[in-house]
């Protein structure tokens, strides 16, 4: 049990360290590396919870696709890596800290208030179960998410069309 606890602490440290690096580093590319580290930490948590499918999906989607897309966007907007830190003004830093603390307390409250069901035996959720859930019991929220994504795509296309002049 001690061994498992040590692993858990290491995973948590990796996740938090990456998150701190994302927020506090001045250079945008280091912030991105921090984000990648956090994603790996979260994937590690999934493996710790005996959900390898989710862990692999976490790496595939968040590390492989999302951060790479962010990197691509960074490279398109130009060489920002020599720019000084954004939150060098005290006011900005205080505002950011207020927002962060507020959302932290909201999440903490929700987590503490929820009645968690503790299972006596560990269980493994298979890929098949996830598919069943998504296309059977949770079809409606699943479709709602896809609608949201379609709206986002249309919005992005509209933005890119209008920014090219010739209104």
């Amino acid at each position: 049990m001690i061994f498992a606890d040590i692993i858990f602490v290491i995973i948590i440290l990796i996740t938090l360290g990456g998150a701190l690096m994302t927020v506090l580093s001045g250079s945008i590319i280091y912030a991105l590396m921090g984000l990648v580290t956090t994603m790996f930490g979260v994937a590690g948590l999934y493996i710790y919870l005996n959900a390898p499918f989710l862990a692999m999906m976490q790496i595939l989607i968040y590390v492989g696709a999302i951060t790479v897309l962010i990197a691509f966007a960074i490279m398109l907007i130009g060489p920002l890596y020599k720019k000084p830190k954004e939150w060098s003004y005290p006011l900005k830093f205080i505002l950011a800290a207020v927002v962060a603390l507020f959302s932290f307390f909201v999440f903490a409250k929700v987590i503490l208030k929820t009645q968690w069901i503790v299972l006596s035996t560990p269980f493994a959720i298979s890929t098949k179960d996830i598919g069943r859930l998504l296309f059977d019991r949770l079809t409606f929220p699943f479709e709602l998410i896809s609608l949201l994504i379609v709206v986002a795509i249309i919005g992005a296309v509209m933005l890119s069309l209008y920014s090219r002049g010739e209104k």
């Binding site: 790496i59 595939l60 590390v63 492989g64 790479v68």
Partner: peptide, 9 residues
Amino acid sequence: LAFSSLTVL
């Protein structure tokens, strides 16, 4: 598939 996306990183 997940880890091969690290190459591009």
